[in-house]
Design a protein around this nucleic acid. Sequence first.
DNA 1: ATGTTTCACGCAACCGGTTGCATGTCCTCG
DNA 2: CGAGGACATGCAACCGGTTGCGTGAAACAT
Lengths: 327, 327
Amino acid sequence: MAATIRDVAQASGVHVSTVSRTFSAPHLVNAETRNRVLAVAEDLGYRPNRAARALTTGRTHNLGLIVADISNPFFPPLIKAAQAHARTRDYHVFVADTDEDPQVEEELIKALAKQVDGVLLCSPRLSNRAIERLHADVPFVVVNREVKGMPTVLMDIGQGARLAIEHLAGLGHRRVALVSGPSGSWTSKRMREAAAAVDGVDLVYLGPNVPTEQGGLAVAPEVTASGATGVLAYNDLVAMGLIEGLHERGLRVPGDVSVIGVDDIVSGRLNRPRLTTVAMPTAAAGRMAVDLLLQSVAEGGTATLATLATGLVVRESTGPVPEPAGS
Amino acid sequence: MAATIRDVAQASGVHVSTVSRTFSAPHLVNAETRNRVLAVAEDLGYRPNRAARALTTGRTHNLGLIVADISNPFFPPLIKAAQAHARTRDYHVFVADTDEDPQVEEELIKALAKQVDGVLLCSPRLSNRAIERLHADVPFVVVNREVKGMPTVLMDIGQGARLAIEHLAGLGHRRVALVSGPSGSWTSKRMREAAAAVDGVDLVYLGPNVPTEQGGLAVAPEVTASGATGVLAYNDLVAMGLIEGLHERGLRVPGDVSVIGVDDIVSGRLNRPRLTTVAMPTAAAGRMAVDLLLQSVAEGGTATLATLATGLVVRESTGPVPEPAGS
DNA sequence: ATGTTTCACGCAACCGGTTGCATGTCCTCG
DNA sequence: CGAGGACATGCAACCGGTTGCGTGAAACAT
């Protein structure tokens, strides 16, 4: 089997504690012995067992990242950024997908709890109560959701939604639909509040919807029925599905209806029409989340709240309100 | 801190070994004591520490899954399937992204090695030599690549490529371009071999290319210059980028050029035109991979090779060869 | 009544590391 | 020359579990 610390100790004629120190506190061991030990270790292919180390130190140097749906292109940039950033701090990130199932989410958190120093909860589907309860097991940082007393990274979707609605209003749209996400979604709620604060447009709320292309496709009839000429969708996936659905019903985007998404995922940039969307600072959020988590791991619960700005990227899926048919 | 096995033992008046057995070998302990222990454990919120258990049993009940690029929509279905399937076997899978960097890949494998019972290597970028060397540390199963002596899950891209080329030939295309992926890609090589075996079409090889939309966009000029009327792209992302690129140069798909992708990702189904593509059994591959891995973990290195069939999904991005302009 | 199984559980070593304390050696300084 | 300090290393307990072995008691057979 793989070489252990005792193998190395024996082969280099020192006590295991010296070998241990060679790796975890090199300055405590004489340069000469250290080199000898390192040589022997190299020779035997020894590598410290992180799990065993964790048992005594209480630090695994691992982080967990829990996400509802890896397929959602919104997450990968966040995951990559978190992973890369954590690596610079000598941490590894393990990702798990909950399949949008709170049950699975809870189970995963429990399984992860003892194997990581902290968990990044991205757009969790669990209730606040459950999250607070689980928090006893392992430090959290929550992304894209507000849970009281917990370190949180928010992207200011409210601001983005406001910009989006104002953009539509500026193009002359007077009736716009808000296509929301899963029921109880924190994001949907924020978007709604921000949209309602904009003057001069009638809002109609359509939802809840599955947060994917399917959801967008399915909501198309409701959108046409609503008489709205502008739409702010829950995310780009929904927006793209919706555009497809409108198209099937003979409506042109942006000719007949203007559609705005949220997230600025890459395929939205290649979609036709290119999607006007609220850009989310996902990579920055990933890095920030790691920072907050490591900080709270090191210093004990500091419940910081970081809010990152969003922006509107205007492309081709929005245009002036169409002339009334009767004109 | 969290309750340990000794806390439970003390509180329920039995020896730690009895508590241990209550969880890991319930049949060895009297029903009455077992219930008492369970009650106390529940009460104290005790949960066995998987990491500590792993130290003695040598089984972490975790699997690692290493993937070059999570953003590539080809992977999530595989990841999800693997994850879900593993869960039914009481295993968890941790995903890590290497950012297409062999260096990072190797580092991740080493870090993961001691914390998981086996690793799923999906389309690894590492050399065969490196993989074989690392194999001493931890069992592998390789997906989408052939490494001698290692359990492997392959999707029969050769078959799919043949179907694709035959489809184009059947539509009258006589000159088709093969837009390949990164240099040295195992998949590209297979596609090329299979395509070459089809009679009646001239093949032109274009590559290497970045395996994303960017790559497809960038290769568009070469495609038009090649005089090909049909294209088989490395994957759907490349195909979509290419279609966009052709469009920018005033060419219609499928009017002027027919394009086939590979992977059957969802956004290809919503793209306009809807993408004709080689469907890959990604979910099945994910499940198969964990089966193979668990088997090889349990029984020691059985180097099975599983090959999964692919199919052609004909949609709208392919059509009859255009009439020569001069006709 | 005695011998043999079976069952339930305790004992203690062990997995692979870490770390506070003790020991011993060599320097330095008054 | 002796006290005190710095340095390098060994010792052994500990992290949170698992498990082979041994023991006592109850159940069964003879």
